[in-house]
Simulated assay, not measured.
Amino acid sequence: MTLELLHKPGMAQLTSLGIGGNARVLAKVRDEAGLDELSRFVEREGSDLLAIGEGSNILAGDGELNLALVQMACERKAEAEISGTSVRVPADMRLPGLLSVLIKNGLSGMEGLAGIPGSVGGSVAMNAGSYGTDMQSSVKRVRLWTPEKGLFWKDAANLKWGYRHFSTGTDEFFLVWEVEFELAPSTEAEVRSRIKDTFDKKKATQPVTAKTAGCVFKNPEGYSAGKLLDDAGFRGRNLGGMGFSEMHANFLENKGNGTAAQALELMSQATEAVSDKFGVTLKPEVIILS
């Protein structure tokens, strides 16, 4: 089977936050041949389409969601191709798996991304970043798929990047299929040490093992969203099964049987409080599907 269709998939099983109702349908692309079938699926489903990776930055609404999801889920093992300091990987490789490859090959440049979950494709699609670096910093080119053009490579310089933002420059549905990175030569010991330092720092300050969707809000220019939330009294604030983390106020945790309604109400309260107290408008970093 090259394209597997799942009807009414549960968003709680498709996202790291573990909440949400059911989407209308999920198309799992099992191999390159499945892209032909995907073209017909996209044409049939129309506009309510979303490509997802491992769902590590998604807050899905409760109940029935009028969404058609597309996910790259190839059956072969995701492996890297290395040529000098260039590394080419399929989009469904997990970002921690890519960092393991970089350690073994002594390639530097992405150490600041340690501790970020999710797939390589999803990380590119939101330009994931932390500790002063992001995906854009190391991406050389991206292999994209669109219904009209099929598979094609596009240089990073010809794509639109921003803070937690990535765009192909058109409104057409796209899927990240492969990514090629350009790194700097180093040693296994040095890269391993820097990745360990980054992860240890995150583990000490962020709830990396909890059910979260990463940072809830973007950092407003000149501010730390976490500090604003902390100063507004939202660290550890709970509502039902959801709550802002005790470790870092910019993380919402599903503490057990949490719901999207609870998460959205907490976000609304936090946005209003920060605006009232500091005159700063917080904008979601997490992707809200409703």
Rank of each mutant, 00 (worst) to 15 (best):
V25W: 00
K8P: 00
M110W: 09
A157C: 06
T205K: 14
E285K: 06
L228W: 12
I195N: 04
L151Q: 14
T281E: 11
R237P: 01
G18Y: 02
R194P: 00
S137V: 02
N57D: 12
A78S: 14
Q71K: 12
R235H: 03
S186F: 10
K104R: 15
E43Y: 00
T259Y: 06
V216E: 09
L98E: 13
G243Q: 01
G214D: 03
N66M: 10
A270T: 12
R237S: 04
R143K: 15
M267T: 05
N158I: 02
L159G: 08
T212L: 04
K211Y: 06
C215N: 15
R88C: 15
L3K: 12
D36I: 03
P220W: 03
G222N: 09
S119K: 07
F199H: 09
K203D: 12
A60G: 03
L159D: 08
A80Q: 05
N127H: 02
A12Q: 14
W145H: 10
T209M: 02
P117C: 08
G20Q: 10
R40W: 06
A80D: 08
S123Q: 07
G55I: 11
S193E: 15
S167C: 10
I19Q: 00
G150W: 02
L183K: 03
L151I: 12
A184N: 14
A128M: 01
A12M: 11
D230Q: 15
V216S: 09
V89C: 11
L252N: 07
V70C: 04
E64H: 01
I103L: 01
E45T: 11
V176T: 07
K160R: 15
A33K: 13
G21S: 04
V120G: 06
F217S: 10
S100G: 14
A33Q: 11
G109P: 07
E43N: 01
L95H: 04
I195S: 09
G112W: 10
L67W: 12
T281V: 13
F199D: 04
A273E: 15
W177S: 06
N257R: 13
E37C: 03
N105G: 13
G61S: 08
F234G: 10
V120A: 05
I288H: 00
S108V: 05
V216M: 14
L38A: 05
E32M: 04
P284V: 08
A73Q: 09
P117L: 10
S100F: 00
R44S: 11
L65G: 07
D62G: 06
A260C: 14
I58S: 04
N219S: 06
V176H: 11
E54P: 02
L113W: 02
F166E: 12
E64F: 00
T2M: 00
L3D: 11
K203G: 01
W153T: 08
N238Q: 13
D230F: 06
S224K: 12
R24C: 08
F244D: 11
G46W: 09
T170Q: 10
T168G: 14
L228Q: 05
